[in-house]
Each structure stands twice: as structure tokens, then as C-alpha cells.
Design a protein around this nucleic acid. Structure first.
Lengths: 342, 342
DNA sequence: TTGTATGCGTTATCAA
DNA sequence: TTGATAACGCATACAA
């Protein structure tokens, strides 16, 4: 189990390191017999090329850097899973960094990824990132970057995200069609792209049905664990008849807050939330959900990034890829799954 | 934002690379003026030492390899978060690998981590790993290894895990004290250490109260999504009056299966589960839980590993560190938190 | 077909 | 106090 290098093989077989290297690399003309010898020896002693040395030499690493706001988050851990699966199958390794929703931390981790000679970056922007010039600078140095989920229109790059507008539109429309009129919208800070898109979908649905857009029904909740309850309580003063929570944490927090206040669902108010946690159907009272295809988003983003790294930029790619969401209605006894946005 | 090397600085300042290196490294005697010049220049052009080159030279990487069965899992993503926090604060980077509950895959990822010259390994064993000789071989090569959560007594190493015995004992005792007599135990495959410990705790509690240990009430469920329901249905034939689910997925799966069968909790049966998902108090009907301190386990494991890497093996460490679990009773209206095993 | 030399970025050793 | 050189593991241009 000792680590063995090309040099060891060369010494043992009385060859030069270059010959051994060629034999293993299967390059150029080489005596089949020599090659056999080398390959056999390498196998026997479990030779593994040193990726560090390779990185240094080739100024690439077969590593892709993934930067997410949080690892311990259902959405991102699923997305990472998708990324990892694709990366693995295409011979890349993944290094994960957390920005902890901090712009400064994001800068730092991006730097680290670059220092580690990541061949490309997969980024979901931190909640406090509004300026993306650090990424633009990297693009100018020809570093492939693909954004996912939390994307930015300010960066000219491929981006993969859920179909937020369509999903939000469908969710809102569903509430309206169930007879709801005063639909509260609970969302995250506004500079994040997905916030805008979901809000736009919500708004468009209201417009379609001639309902007024009431700013009093919109609330932004900061990141962090226990910020949802006061916001929900605040919203309740506006006597809404439905809640549309634009995120996982918001939806669960909203549910908890309503439960605490003994607001019953769907009798008093309806609740629908963007979510990733697969426990929604265990929850009572019934909350309908718009599920974000985290795994698929991760996979797609990884495929695109690696294509870009390897110069396989397939045909003309649109800049923004939208992965459809799935709406699950749980107010009736039978959950109903609806593929949205296709 | 260009990447700049020591060589660039040397050229620009008309110095040799070794002088520059010394100036930055603050080593040896060096002209303060020269040093100032170098440091200034380095700062101005944002010089970052190339970690790859350093790794090659020093045969270490300031990277710790983390191997978990799954990333997209509440427990592990929280543990990783703890690991990452400690690693970050102590100047290490983390590379995460998934074994996907496969022994072969675990072998492979361990090899990759070693190839990447990880300075140490943090491992939660795959569900199909019973032989740990691959890890023993690495230990012989002086590679620091700390196991966490899914540990093995076959490996002489530091290990950090929840206080599974005490937690299981408390959970079972709680059920008994609530008047339950036929307590089903739902667990994962038996070769995993935590399975054994939780089962032992369950058994010890039964014994304490003079209840029989009935093998018909014990069921092992394979990994994977939808394997829980049939097992629960099967158990229901034994007419249990309580369920003790020894894991997250099992607990939620059990809850779902019971709900589907219209078994009401806690009227028909009580349910308590080992868990990490923080949504348990949203769930209905009320399930009590024994929460595993994933974050803390990750942090502790990382601290120990890094101490080991840096030769700071503090005092005489016991081989197995137990982090207390927290039991939360939810059958009454008010959830009650009990710190267990301290 | 094989071997020698060089370089990737850095630091340690030794010489100046 | 500074500089030249070698080495970490590997691949390749060039020489033989």
C-alpha cells in the first residue's frame, strides 16, 4: 500500500522515467514488451499518478470548485449531489466551499478555488452578493464559470436555475383558483435573482385574474433560523387568506408559526411553498409545494461547466437554462403532482 | 487579478526567487528594506502562494479528506458543516467524498483522498463496510484517521459518535414509562456500529423493566428510499404499541407508513425516533425524537483529527468520544427537551 | 524505441 | 544578506 512513483518503477525496471511515463500514458511509439512490463509492474504495486504533480505541470487540476451559501441545506446538498455525480462520471473531483451568505467570504473562497487551480467554478451566489465583478475578472482570465440557482443577470455566463417565474405563477394561480384573494407573499431579500422572479410570477398571476398587488402583503425575511415567525405574525395582521412562501425555510417557518397561532390550514388560510425537503407530505396541516429540482439543476450545471472546460460548448446554448419545477397540491386528500413550466 | 508567482516578484525587483521566498516567509536574516519591498509588491499584486506547488514540495496539502455515505442527508451535511467550520478556522481545506453506502466506492474514494495527499481522513463508514483493513493499512503509513458516527471497533483509532446507547435507553425507557409494553425496534443493517449500540440501549431498558426481548419486534431496513413502508406494515402484524425508529429516514418513513394505514399517534401507538431533521415539531401526529448532535460531532472529530495531524495529541484521549443526544418529548402539548447521557 | 533535459512554483541547503 | 541549485512527480521536446 506504499505510494509508488514513476521513478520507482523506472528504477526497478532499469528504464528511464520518460519511458515509464510514455508506457503508462500509452503515448507515442513504444516497445509493446516494455509497455507490458511497465503496466504490469504499475498494476502490481498499485501505481497511482500523483494528481498534485500533474496539476503543477499542466496548470489544471481536474477539480471543479463549487461555492454555495450553505452545505447544511436541503437544496444545496441535493444540488451538490447532482454535481458530484456528473463530475465523478466525467473524471473530475469536486471541492466545496461555503460562502455563509457573506460577500466577503465568497470573495475569499473564490480566491481559494482559483489558487487550487480549479478548472472551473460552479457558483450559487451568496445572499449578500450584489456585485459580481470578482467573477467577471475570472472570466476574463478564461476561467469557465456556471451559475446555478442564485444567478445574476449582471454576469454574462451560463446559468441554471429553477423555473421560478412559472412555478410562482402556477402556485399563485392555484391559490386564486381555490378562491383565495388576499395572498401573502413571503420571500427572501430582494437583491437575489430568484426573489425577483418568484415575485414576478406571483404578480403576473394576480394581474391575470385582475387582483390588486398589495405591497402590505409582501414581506422579506432575512436569512437565519428564527426570523420567520415575527414576519408571519406581522402578515397575519393584514388578514390574508393564503400564504405563498418563496423558499424552503420560509415555508416550514410559516407552517410552524401558523400552527403556533392556531391558524388552521386550509380552513383559515391556504399555504403553498417553494421547497426541497421531501417531508412535506408528512406535514400537517397540509401544505402544497412547488418542488425545486435541485439534483437536476446540479447535474445540468455540472454538465455545462465540464463541457465548457473541455471546449465542448455544445451548439448555441441559451444563457439561462430553466429546469421545470413540480407543483404538488395537498389540500385534497390525494396529493397531485403537476409538472410545471414545460 | 492575474496570478502572480514568486518568480514574477523576483524578476520585477531584480532579486532571486530564494530571496523573495525568504522575505515572504519571514525566515532567516534578511535586509529589512528588501523585505519591505517584497512584501509591498506581493501585496500590491495580490500574490498568493501556489498551494499545489507547496503540496508537491512538502508532501502535505493542508487538506483533510472527508468520506461520508451521502452528502444529501441531513445528518451528514450538518456534520460536514461542523467539520468545515473547524477546518476553516485552523487553516485547512476540506475535500468531500461520497461512498454511496458502497464498500468498493469507499475504497476508491479513500485512495483518491490519499492520492491528493490529504493530511488526514475523517470517515463515516459506508453501510456495507465490514472490513476496515484498507484503513488500517493507511494508519500504518502514519496517516491520521478519525472515524465519526459510523465507527468500527475493529479499527484502533479515535472515534466520535453520538451517545447511541444512552439515547436509545432513554427513548425506550420513556416509552415504557408511558405505559408501552410491545415496543417495535426499527433499525438499519446490523453490521453498522450504531445499530448495535442503539439496539443494546433498547434491550437494556427492556431488561431494566423486566420486559421480554422479542425478536419479532426487531426489523432491519436496507438503505434506499422506499424500503421502510413494507417493514412497518410487517411489524404492525405483531401488534406493537410503540415504535422506536433508530434513524432519521426510518423515523420519517415509519411516520408516513403509519399515517397511510391510519394508525394514530399516540393513541394507537407511540413513536420515537433518532433524528436530525429539524422539522419534527411540524410533523403530525406528534413524534418524539432523540436528536443527534451532528454539528458537534463533526466539530469534535475535526478538532481531534487536526490535533493529530499537527502532533498536538492532547493528553490521553479516550478512543471513543461520545457526544450526548437530546431527547424531545412531543406527546404532551409542550415539547420537552432532555439532555441525555451527560 | 529509449534516454536526457527542462519546467511547473516553492523552499531548503549550501555557497558566495 | 543574497544567490545558485536541487528536489518534489510528472510529461514532453529534443537528442541519441
Amino acid at each position: 500500500m506504499e505510494t509508488i512513483t514513476i521513478k520507482d518503477i523506472a528504477r526497478a525496471l532499469n528504464l528511464s522515467t520518460s519511458t515509464v511515463s510514455r508506457a503508462l500514458r500509452d503515448s507515442y511509439e513504444i516497445n509493446p514488451e516494455t509497455k507490458r512490463l511497465v503496466v504490469e509492474y504499475a498494476e502490481r504495486f498499485n501505481y497511482q499518478p500523483n494528481p498534485i504533480a500533474l496539476s503543477l505541470k499542466e496548470n489544471r487540476s481536474r477539480v471543479i470548485g463549487v461555492i454555495v451559501p450553505q452545505i447544511a441545506n436541503n437544496y444545496f446538498s441535493q444540488a451538490i449531489n447532482g454535481i458530484d455525480a456528473v463530475a465523478y462520471s466525467r473524471g473530475y473531483q469536486v471541492i466545496i466551499f461555503q460562502s455563509h451568505e457573506s460577500y466577503e467570504r465568497e470573495l475569499l473562497t473564490v480566491q481559494q478555488a482559483v489558487a487550487r487551480k480549479a478548472d472551473g467554478l460552479l457558483i450559487s451566489l451568496s445572499g449578500s452578493t450584489s456585485d459580481v465583478s470578482h467573477l467577471r475578472a475570472l472570466q476574463e482570465r478564461k476561467l469557465p464559470i456556471v451559475l446555478f440557482d442564485r444567478v445574476s443577470k449582471d454576469l454574462k455566463s451560463l446559468a441554471v436555475t429553477a423555473d421560478n417565474f412559472t412555478g410562482a405563477f402556477a402556485a399563485t394561480e392555484h391559490l386564486i383558483q381555490s378562491g383565495r384573494r388576499r395572498i401573502a407573499h413571503l420571500t427572501i431579500p430582494s437583491y437575489i435573482s430568484i426573489t425577483q422572479e418568484r415575485l414576478a410570477g406571483y404578480r403576473a398571476a394576480l394581474e391575470k385574474y385582475g387582483l390588486p398587488y398589495d405591497e402590505n402583503l409582501i414581506r422579506y425575511s432575512e436569512f437565519g433560523q428564527n426570523n420567520v415567525e415575527p414576519v408571519v405574525n406581522d402578515l397575519l395582521d393584514q388578514s390574508p387568506d393564503a400564504f405563498f412562501a418563496a423558499g424552503d425555510r420560509l415555508a416550514l417557518g410559516c407552517l410552524a408559526a401558523l400552527k403556533k397561532r392556531n391558524v388552521s390550514i386550509p380552513e383559515d388560510v391556504s399555504l403553498i411553498g417553494f421547497t426541497n425537503t421531501p417531508v412535506a407530505d408528512l406535514l400537517a396541516p397540509p401544505m402544497s409545494t412547488v418542488e425545486q429540482p435541485a439534483l437536476e439543476i446540479g447535474q445540468t450545471a455540472a454538465e455545462l461547466l465540464i463541457d465548457q472546460i473541455e471546449g465542448k460548448q455544445k451548439a448555441a446554448q441559451p444563457d439561462m437554462i430553466r429546469i421545470p419545477t413540480r407543483m404538488i397540491i395537498r389540500e385534497s386528500s390525494q396529493p397531485v403532482g403537476l409538472r410545471v413550466g414545460e
